[in-house]
Design a protein around this nucleic acid. Structure first.
Length: 436
RNA sequence: GACCCGUUCGUCUAUCGGUUAGGACUCCAGGUUUUCAUCCUGGCAAGAAGGGUUCGACUCCCUUACGGGUCGCCA
């Protein structure tokens, strides 16, 4: 039996990180086993469905890099892949329940009659779990068809999994108690149940349930916050799954190779945005400066900064200094424009060095005297100025850094000297020395 | 309330009866970098509680506590 998994979101809100991780695990499992991954949109609740939410699903999946083999825009032999277009299929399956006397009318709706017996599921993550359906008060017969003629989630979900020949259902633990209901329906249909794997939920940092408006909850927010899709995928994969080694940074391809349901945890995990940022940085560092510059460009432009000839070199100078792409504009602004602020603490630190002012004045003159400007020439000048005053060159480097950038942290000093050029460097050193 | 699932540093986790309980994020302290970052080293920090079983329990069993989930003509 070939592996076929699916992600079946309902377009009633934004794509949530919990949903994204469910999609990811299904995708990883299918890819790992060379199987198929299906996207099915469960839009049976007309009142709550929105077009925006539907788009958010596609956009989120595309951004994360999770492609589907069958589904909207892609087709497949088990379509259509919007439940709202499958009414005829559901009617046919419902008739089977009518014919076998498993449903009865109640207030205009139709209820499925459960068999009153213990139902045991063999979950790939939770193990063997038994729910006793002899306790009717806890498991009342469920409505499968509403009085308006539409079908409820349990029914369409089961029918579609059967119709689409889904082999493994990987879903959130919030569905664990639904599984016996689904198993009973499948049994009534005489179908073969897929294997189930219920994965733990993702919680807020404080342990409460993560809801739509919590930080980090909406996948759609990640791009503009400066996260790389590969980093987000890496991070959420590690929430609830681990490779059983000390490795933490993985590409999507490496995750495909390593993923297995046996290594999925049972306890819910809390979402730690700080670690997510660190993972992002780990994905940023190995990028080429060209790729990094391309990825950062929307942020630089959005900040209203110019994109000059040497744009790639400018952006590349901070590649290993930021955790998020959104931090790039503030990190390079002084390289692109002449108006920038001075960090009070950095300036105070320079003022603490009594000799700094005179040294900087000399340095500005020395800079102006350089005929062939280069970082090496500038550094040579710095060494000369420092030596002449009996100071260590290193003592002048921090003041020069602040003079050029206005801050204590930033690109390599040599990069700044190169990128800024002679005139700007000399002017900024002179201007800064006057501030001291 | 009933029924399910869970519980190792603040957080993510390793450990499949015998370990000084390991790694990572965060934080702190050093070092490398003539500067910044990266990086390296070190430090802080954990088995929810109580009973069993066992020569020996974080690991197996029970109870309690706590957390999460589910009990819809939502999905």
């Amino acid at each position: 039996m070939s592996v076929r998994t699916r992600f079946a979101p309902s377009p009633t809100g934004y794509l949530h990180v919990g949903g994204a991780r469910t999609a990811l695990f299904n995708w990883l499992f299918a890819r790992h086993h060379g199987g198929a991954f299906i996207l099915r949109v469960e839009d049976t609740d007309e009142a709550r469905n929105t077009e925006d939410a539907k788009q958010a699903i596609f956009e989120g999946m595309n951004w994360l890099g999770l492609d589907w083999d069958e589904g909207p825009d892609k087709g497949g032999k088990h379509g259509p892949y919007f439940q709202s277009e499958r009414k005829g299929i559901y009617d046919a399956w419902f008739q089977k329940l009518v014919d076998t006397g498993r449903v009865y009318e109640d207030g205009g709706a139709w209820r499925f009659r459960f068999e009153r017996k213990p139902v045991t599921m063999h979950d790939l993550v939770c193990g063997e779990v038994t729910i006793d359906y002899r306790d009717e008060s806890n498991t009342p017969d469920m409505v499968v068809k509403r009085s308006d003629g539409s079908y409820v989630f349990h029914f369409v979900n089961v029918v579609d999994d059967l119709e689409m020949e889904i082999s493994h259902v990987i879903r959130g633990e919030d569905h664990l108690m639904n599984t016996p209901k689904h198993l009973q329906l499948i049994e009534a249909f005489g179908g073969t149940a897929p294997r189930y794997a219920h994965i733990p939920l993702i919680l807020n940092p404080n342990g409460s349930k993560m809801s739509k408006r919590d930080a980090g909850a909406a996948v759609g927010d990640y791009p503009r916050q400066g996260f790389l899709p590969g980093a987000v995928v890496n991070f959420i994969a590690l929430l609830g799954w681990n490779p059983k080694t000390d490795e933490e940074i993985f590409t999507l391809a490496q995750l495909v190779e390593r993923f297995s349901l046996e290594n999925v945890n049972r306890a819910p995990g809390r979402f730690d945005l700080e670690k997510c940022k660190w993972v992002n940085q780990q994905h940023l560092i190995p990028m080429s400066v060209e790729d990094f510059a391309v990825a950062a460009k929307p942020f630089v432009e959005a900040a209203g900064l110019p994109v000059p000839e040497n744009y790639v070199a400018v952006i590349g100078s901070v590649k290993e200094k930021v955790r998020l792409l959104s931090e790039v504009p503030a990190a390079v602004d002084f390289l692109l424009v002449d108006e920038f602020g001075y960090d009070d603490e950095a300036v105070a630190k320079v003022r603490g060095n009594a000799a700094a002012k005179d040294l900087l004045v000399s340095l500005a003159e020395s800079f102006e005297g350089i005929s062939e400007w280069s970082a090496d020439q500038a550094k040579a000048a710095l060494n000369e100025v420092a030596n002449a005053a009996g100071a260590k060159p290193g003592q002048l480097m921090f003041p020069l850094r602040v003079a050029l950038s206005g801050r204590a942290h930033g690109p390599d000093l040599g990069d700044m000297l190169d990128l800024l050029g002679k005139a700007r460097c000399a002017d900024r050193v002179r201007k800064f020395s006057a501030m001291l």
